[in-house]
Each structure stands twice: as C-alpha cells, then as structure tokens.
Design a protein around this nucleic acid. Structure first.
Lengths: 243, 243
DNA sequence: CTTAGTTATACTCAATGTGAGTAGAAATCG
DNA sequence: CGATTTCTACTCACATTGAGTATAACTAAG
C-alpha cells in the first residue's frame, strides 16, 4: 500500500475532540506599571468578569494565524509582536465544553497600548500585580489604575501570571524590553520599563553600562524635548547587536 | 438568564475542530551524548521513518495526563519528569488530517533511558546533533551511535530541536542537569552532562566552584568504586538549595 | 615495596561584571 | 544669575569567572 492509497482510505472522524482556542495576553506599560488589555464579558458564562481576548482556531488556520486574527478582530490591533506562551488544558477550565487554549503573549509599545484602549473595542487596561509566585506561575491580581480589583474569568489569572513570568525570564537576554517602548527612547525610559517588568528597582549606573556595553542601543544624536530639566539623549534599538 | 440556564441551552457542536495530540521528547544521556527515544513507524503515513512517541488527547483528559499516558503506553516508562514544551500547529504537519500537537519534554536518568530501550517497546536511541540553530529552533540531525542518520517523520525534527534548545536555556538556573543523572554522581559526571547538553565544553574549576557555591549538591561521604585511578567523591542533588 | 600514571581536589591570579556612591554637565525656572 | 533637578561620566570595592598550577589519592606495573 502506498502512502497515497493509505491516505485515500483514512477515516479522520473517530473520537470526540476538545475545542481549540487561542487567548491573547497583550501587555504594555501604563503609568509606569505593567498592564494588560482585557475585555469585559457581556454574555454567559461568567458575564461581567474580565477576560483575555480569544477565539477558536479554524480548521485550516495556523495557531499563529488564529492569534493574529484575534488580535485584529477582538482587540482591534493591526500588528504586534506575538509569541506562543503555553497551552492550557485543564478539563473544567471552561464550563461550556472542553476547550484547550493556546495562550499567546503580545507586547505593545506605550502608544499602541493607549490607542487600542481608545479604539472602542471595549478593551480595558488592567494594572498587574504579580508577586513572585514560584515556578508554575501563581495567580495574579489585576486592578484598575486606582486600585479597584478586576475579577478575571476562567483560568485567565493563571495565564496572565505565566505571561509576566515569561516576560521576566526573557528580559535579560532578549529584546523584549524594547518591544514596549517607542522607536526613540531615553535610557531612563528603558530602565523604567525593565523595572516595571521585574517589579523591582535596578541599579542605575550598572544598568546604563550594561545596555551600552551590549551594543543593543544606538544613539540617535537627538535629545528629549519638553522636559523641565536637562534633557536625556535619545536612543534607538540596534538590532545588529548580538543576542 | 442565569449561568446554569445559559449552559443548559449551549450548543457545543458548531465548527469542525482540529485533532489534538501530545508528542513526547524523551531525552537522556547515552555514551556521553544527548540522545532521544524514538519509535520507528510501521504504518502509513511515513512508514519507516522515526517518530516521537505520541497519542491523541482524550475528551476528558488533561494535557499532562495524556502525556503521562503516552509515556506509559507508548514508551513503557512508568514515571519521568515531564514538562510542556510548545504546541505545534502547522496546517499540513500531518497528511492524514489537521492535528495540533502539544509537545512535552521528558528527562530520563541514564539507567531509566537504557531500561526503556531494552523494554521491548520498539524504542531506539537517536544521538542528537543540534547546531545552535537560532531562535526558532532549527532542524536537528538525529543518528544512531555509529553515525548513520535516522530520518524523522512529520515535523519531529523541529520538535527535537526546540526541546534541546529549551533544555540548554534552563540548564543554568534550574535542576534539569540532575534529572539526567542517577541519585549519586560525581562532579565529573555532572560536568559531562552539562557539556553534553550545551554541546560545548566547560571550565572545570569554575564549574566545580559554581556547583558547590550554589548549594545544589550535598556530599554523600561515599566515593566512586571500580575506577582505575583516584575515585571521586559522590554527591547527591540537594533540593533545599535555592533556585 | 616502590614508582609511574592518572584523575580528583584545592589553590592562585588576572579579567570581567556589578552595586554603590560621587562629581561635574546641561537644561529650566524664578 | 543662581537654585534646582536630572543626565552623564567617573571611581572604588566586591563577586564571579576563565585559566592555569600544585598537591592528594588511588591503581597497576615493575
């Protein structure tokens, strides 16, 4: 039997299958803190709770393509740096039916984050407080800017916590820090982003030295404008630096 | 409408769904090199090629549970340290139908690896040569111990490459190195394992110093037996050391 | 019993990276 | 012009690492 003969007689039916979805953790910096974009659920189940933008994976659609589609359709964002995070498969994570969800992490520069919020897609920004919750990524507390807690739907608190954990882990040896900044930025802004992701302050001179030595940043020659005091030099991300 | 009323009327049918599977990358050390357990495909499609042990996810089965079941049923291994790796969702990755596969990484101590090989489940050991293939985890070349290449089925070369990449990334700050060793081991053995995973040699004194300073290892008081020369001290993994 | 051979273990030393602090430069505002 | 505030460039101590050397411990050969 050749391979094509075999395929002709193959029956793809068989067993009951879990539904497959993608959920997007879209992170940005808001008022100096790490924040995520959430949608308020208007329908049952768990109406009124806050959820990650998500959607089902089409039968002829790549996981990455599904994530990009959800980014456009549910979050109203044209483009973002998306990266697969983890796949959540608890049996009872959704009360409707068995849904396995592939979580994606997306990073938005501050401007894109604000634009998405204003875009009318019903998105809200949740400020994240993520204590260092150990290996598995413990639950996260999400809240509005003034501290009111936002209750999260399904297992989305776990997903958010894991996203922050992943981000923290990649901070030191990849360019994730730059993905949250505009094209031109000051060293102070870069440090603030790193501090927001880590949830802990950094040594200033060591940070500047490290960033410059690694060759990740290139001076633009321009300087910050509109500051009350000495304006800082503007840099841009230099992709030619090694990773 | 309450949540339970809503659920009663919910129709879980709807769209055609991808099939969901798990595939296991079971790694161990063999003759000082990193090796994976593979199964030779006896049936179409891709009969004769070598594949990772895998299976479909049951409708009421967790992803982790499916991985453990495959470990038992397909690889004949009772227990191993399993960890989710990545989910592969290319549309044409399996010619039979759309199959999305959640890959798991499993680490076996040298003895358990050899036992699995002898277990009669039809497993073979593939020595892995994984050049540092960049971010996405390029293809890997798998071969027998004497160098003959083993052609891999589906996208399993990508999965293997990503597994090795993940292992390398976690080597410095987690206990993965110990998962490939017996309970008692010498510093030399530990260094060899690290070298095999990295695919590059290590500085001997710096390595010893680092391992001892981190408090990951505790002396057992015993010494190696049966060596031709000075026997090395035996250590064990000390879980109380911080991570 | 002695000695050569081989590996384990413990040192030293230089180079590099980091935490912390100080001093001068550059801008705005009163 | 001077006060104020931040940016930027220094220095210094300390920890970590790469590299090399010396000594200890054991077996096997003579």
């Amino acid at each position: 039997m050749t391979e094509s003969e075999f395929l002709a007689g193959y029956d793809p039916a068989a067993y009951e299958r879990p539904a497959l979805a993608v959920d997007l953790v879209l992170l940005g910096i808001r008022a100096g803190r790490l924040a995520a974009l959430l949608l308020r659920r208007s329908r049952q189940p768990q109406a009124g709770l806050w959820a990650l933008p998500g959607g089902f994976v089409g039968i002829a659609e790549t996981l990455d393509a599904a994530a990009e589609r959800v980014l456009r359709e549910k979050a109203g964002i044209g483009r973002a740096r998306l990266e697969q995070l983890y796949t959540f498969g608890a049996v009872d994570r959704d009360p409707r039916m068995r849904i396995v969800s592939v979580a994606y992490l997306g990073l938005l520069p501050e401007a894109a984050f604000a634009e998405a919020l204003a875009g009318g897609a019903g998105l809200a920004a949740a400020t994240l407080v993520v204590p260092w919750a150990g290996e598995a990524g413990g639950p996260v507390s999400a809240g509005t800017e003034d501290g009111a807690p936002l209750p999260l739907a399904f297992d989305h608190a776990d997903i958010l916590a894991l996203a922050v954990k992943r981000l923290r882990g990649k901070l030191d040896y990849t360019d994730v820090g730059f993905a949250l900044l505009p094209e031109h930025f000051t060293l102070r802004q870069l440090q603030d982003v790193h501090a927001a992701i880590r949830g802990a302050p950094l040594n200033k001179s060591a940070f500047r030295r490290r960033m410059r030595d690694r060759g990740w940043i290139a001076p633009t020659g321009a300087r910050e404008a509109g500051t009350a005091f000495r304006p800082a030099e503007l840099f841009r991300f230099d992709r030619s630096g090694q990773f």
